[in-house]
């Protein structure tokens, strides 16, 4: 049934060519401004904080201490992460002891891990970059860092390298060569999960993370 439906649809689409020769206006008129590195960090931080993300700009050496501070303030019981993520070793050596969450690596397929995952408090992920104009994180999940890490836990902590912050989405797509090969799933994340479906009143954490915490590593 569906192959003939396809044929009929395409027959109509091609036939439309004979009755209409459409005018197509010229595109390529809009470009958001390009910024220098300090401006990019500043704008990303401002934009993200506007939608209630927490952003900390820290040095490469300081981030584990900042993470412990963030965790201490929230006292989560469990934390999930990708075992082979670049920061996995640091996490295992630093996040331990009294008041620290239990580390639960996302090391199995979701079918086996799902029930446990839905009860976990914090998920930590790396990011591929950021976009200053919108205050956005670029997250391409991998076998090491699966998709649900940034969605299911109540708090999402993201590590972002300051050098990977682009001025605009268009620039990020160009520089990262998105058109040459898109991953299974590419995400742009710009804050905690939110909704305004009841009386346009903004509320956070309706399905996904209630909090997004970004550590920008300079």
């Amino acid at each position: 049934m569906s192959s003939t439906a396809r044929d009929r649809i395409f027959a109509r689409l091609h036939a439309a060519r004979t009755t209409v020769s459409p005018h197509v206006p010229q595109g390529g008129n809009w470009q958001a401004p390009m910024l220098d590195k300090a401006q990019r960090i500043e704008l990303l931080k401002t934009r993200m904080e506007t939608v209630r993300s927490e952003v900390h700009v820290v040095s490469e050496a300081e981030w584990p201490a900042k993470l412990l501070e963030v965790l201490k303030a929230r006292e989560p019981k469990t934390l999930t992460y990708g075992h082979d993520a670049w920061f996995g070793g640091t996490l295992r050596s630093k996040v331990k002891g009294k008041g620290m969450p239990k580390l639960v690596p996302y090391g199995e397929n979701v079918e086996a891990f799902r029930d446990e995952l839905f009860g976990i408090d914090v998920g930590i992920t790396s990011t591929l970059g950021g976009i200053a104009e919108n205050g956005t994180l670029i997250v391409w999940p991998t076998p090491q860092e699966p998709r649900l890490l940034s969605l299911v836990p109540t708090v999402h902590v993201a590590l972002l390298k300051a050098d990977a912050i682009y001025s605009t989405l268009a620039e990020a797509m160009r520089e990262m060569r998105w058109a040459e090969g898109m991953p299974t799933n590419a995400l742009l994340i710009s804050g905690p999960s939110k909704t305004a479906d009841i009386e346009m009143t903004l509320a956070f954490g309706v399905h996904g993370p209630k909090e997004l915490i970004v550590l920008v590593l300079e």
Binding site: V110, E133, G135, P146, M182, P183, T184, L188, S193, G208
Partner: peptide, 21 residues
Amino acid sequence: QLVTTYVNCITSPRKEGERDG
């Protein structure tokens, strides 16, 4: 809004080795 919380770009089903999706 300037941007929505999520822009979710889906290009394929779960590939070999991937843990979810």
